[in-house]
């Protein structure tokens, strides 16, 4: 048994290493963005809908803008929205989950019932409805995604908190008069970190999907800001003329979600979260 689990752990470490390397690429794109793009994302050239050439590695779009530059700058937008939204969901989920699991009783009941309501909606449908109601701005997009993923986050926090808070060393801390808040912070939080890390990676992958899918439908950040989803939608329109323009955004989307899935799988095996 110990052999099997240590092997799992080392495979998990490898996956996490790969995931972190992929994440570094993504973060680099976010950090550097326009400065590493060969062209301005809005600069046009007379060669529209070109395939890959020496000048334009991924080709050009329907009005002659460089696709690689748009992919880099668009990636920055897509990932920024994703990171900020998930960070918000994480913060809200932590607060609600800790509160719910730790205080228990009526507070727990109220919070969980409210989250159940949000949970009842198909995620993507709710996102569409909210964006449709509030209008497709970056701020609304971020808020929507944060709200939609908060219940999943809160549940992952609450479960372990419920079981952990009865453990002996928590009891011991309480008996020597450590304050409740300090207990929650110092003793409960560290033990729920593993499942939260895994869940956060999974939600990051889901958020990449939601953000790009919404902009694919035209409900993303308004033009002219490039975005992987809208780029894919655009490429689809001109598919007969320039089929290869689909590849850039498609690969970018898959790469970004794969990053977080690899991270989630690796973390799960490394930290031994869940069953298998």
């Amino acid at each position: 048994m110990t052999d099997a689990s240590s092997r799992l752990r080392s495979r998990g470490q490898l996956l996490v290493a790969i995931g972190l390397a992929m994440l570094a690429v993504l973060l680099l794109i976010v950090a550097l963005g326009p400065s590493i793009a060969p062209y301005s994302p809005s600069a046009t050239s007379p060669n529209s809908l070109d395939g890959p050439t020496a000048l334009h590695w991924l080709g050009t779009d329907s009005i002659g803008r460089d696709l690689l530059s748009r992919l880099i700058v668009g990636g920055r937008g897509t990932l920024m929205i994703t990171f900020v939204a998930v960070a918000l969901a994480l913060a809200a989920g932590l607060v609600l989950g800790l509160l719910s699991g730790y205080v228990g009783g009526r507070v727990d009941l109220t919070i969980m019932r409210l989250l159940d309501v949000v949970f009842a909606f198909p995620v993507f449908l709710l996102a569409i409805a909210v964006v449709a109601a509030l209008g497709p701005t970056v701020k609304n997009l971020i808020l929507t995604i944060a709200v939609v993923y908060t219940p999943a986050m809160a549940r992952v926090v609450r479960g372990p908190v419920l079981s952990v808070k009865r453990w002996d060393h928590v009891e011991a801390a309480r008996s020597v008069g450590v304050g409740e808040f300090a207990i929650a912070l110092r003793h409960v939080l560290p033990l729920v970190v593993s499942p939260i890390l895994v869940q956060t990676s999974l939600i990051l992958a889901n958020t990449i999907f939601t953000v790009t899918a919404l902009s694919f439908l035209g409900l993303g950040p308004p033009p002219p800001d490039p975005n992987w989803g809208s780029m894919l939608a655009e490429a689809r329109q001109f598919m007969e003329l320039a089929p290869l323009t689909v590849i850039g955004p498609a690969v970018a989307i898959v790469f970004a979600s794969l990053t977080f899935i690899v991270l989630a799988n690796g973390l799960r095996e490394m930290l031994d979260v869940g069953s298998r």
């Binding site: 689809r236 498609a250 898959v254 899935i261």
Partner: peptide
């Protein structure tokens, strides 16, 4: 499975449409 999970359904659909169109 990990790879498939990373390919959103609208990307799959777009690629299918592209392949069949070509």
């Amino acid at each position: 499975n990990s790879l498939l999970l990373a390919v959103p359904n609208f990307v799959v659909a777009t690629l299918i449409v592209l392949l069949f169109g070509l």
